[in-house]
């Protein structure tokens, strides 16, 4: 994956910098896998009932929307950009979806439109970034507030999805393994959607020309342009993908909770960024993988789970812990980058 083609930095000709998935490159990802395993072991030892079908099932069910968001964010961050708008886009998308579903529209119309609302915001961010040279975080910050404002115009109180709405069927549990009592391995259609998204993203990034262009842009945008890669189109696409996946995450989330609010998704962009960074994707772009982001999202999901199980950690401290973990991993990236520069 990390050949000279995908990471055409000016100094990439030097052999030290193109070790195929060198240990240093993968260090953050290895660290995050280790942390996830440690969390499992610690959780089992301290609170018990972690290595159980239902706990694992719930971890995936509860993390599915975050994993979908993190996958979209991975694309954007790989190009060296950022998408701060995803949390707010979820609010607009899910409100749109719930209003339409409650108005009696069939679910085959509601779900695509809900997703397309996300695509629309992604498209706007992409156009601002690519065609008007607005910095990614400013463009998406503007979209974040635009979406939040629009959501607040739509409703300022929680809107409930009708109980008999077929929208909810996306979160109907499907038993895979019937364990004793409630200890079953279950998946929901949402989890299946999440898995499909992850698989598709892995394939797109690893096996397609588009995926290689994404890595190339993150490595060195100018060089990618000089090589004749379609930089503008690709950059537009990554924001479109991120927005679309935010719309999809809204569908998944709404079907599970059945409630849409204008404050849904506040701070989720940070969770998604944290998941991507923990998973080992470089914030400067050009290096990282989707599966790492999945691990990152699971680390965050696991952290929430452990904090809930523990009960002594005040919920106020959760954001500090997430921030702390994010900071540690950003620092780790910095160390990796400095080491590489020394080597080069």
């Amino acid at each position: 994956m990390s050949t000279t083609l995908t990471r055409p930095r000016p100094t990439a000709a030097q052999p030290a910098r193109r070790g195929r998935g060198s240990l240093l490159d993968a260090l953050p990802t290895i660290a995050s896998v280790a942390i996830l395993l440690l969390m499992f072991v610690y959780g089992e030892a301290a609170y018990g009932k972690i290595f159980q079908y239902n706990t694992i099932s719930n971890l995936f069910i509860n993390s599915s929307y975050l994993i979908i968001l993190a996958v979209g964010m991975t694309f954007v961050i790989l190009t060296g950009g950022i998408d701060l708008s995803v949390g707010s886009v979820i609010a607009v998308s899910s409100l749109t979806g719930v209003f339409m579903a409650n108005a009696g529209l069939p679910v085959v119309i509601v779900i695509p439109v809900t997703i397309l609302v996300g695509s629309l915001f992604g498209l706007m961010s992409g156009v601002l970034v690519q065609y008007f040279n607005v910095q990614p975080f400013i463009a998406t910050l503007a979209m974040m507030f635009l979406a939040r404002g629009i959501a607040s115009i739509m409703a300022t109180t929680p809107v409930r999805l009708d109980d008999d709405s077929s929208f909810r069927s996306l979160s109907e549990p499907i038993k895979l393994i019937d364990g004793p009592k409630t200890n079953d391995l279950v998946v929901t259609p949402s989890v299946i959607i999440m898995i499909l998204v992850v698989v598709a993203a892995v394939l797109v990034l690893k096996r397609t020309r588009f995926g290689r262009t994404v890595y190339a842009i993150g490595g060195a945008e100018n060089s990618a342009g000089l090589m004749g890669l379609p930089v503008a189109r690709t950059k537009l696409w990554v924001y479109l993908i991120s927005g679309t996946l935010a719309g999809l995450a809204a569908v998944v989330y709404t079907s599970r909770t059945g409630i849409a609010q204008n404050v849904t998704g506040v701070g989720w962009e940070l969770d998604a960024i944290a998941a991507v960074v923990i998973g080992g994707t470089m914030l400067t772009g050009g290096y990282g993988f989707v599966l790492g982001s999945v691990v990152g999202a699971l680390v965050i999901g696991m952290m929430t789970l452990l904090i809930t199980r523990d009960g002594t950690v005040p919920p106020e401290a959760t954001t500090i812990i997430t921030g702390g973990i994010l900071l540690v991993f950003v620092l780790l990236q910095r160390v990796v980058l400095l080491r590489k520069k020394k080597k080069a």
Partner: peptide
Amino acid sequence: PSAATPAFKA
């Protein structure tokens, strides 16, 4: 509604 102000600022 003041909750909508972010949209205008954006």
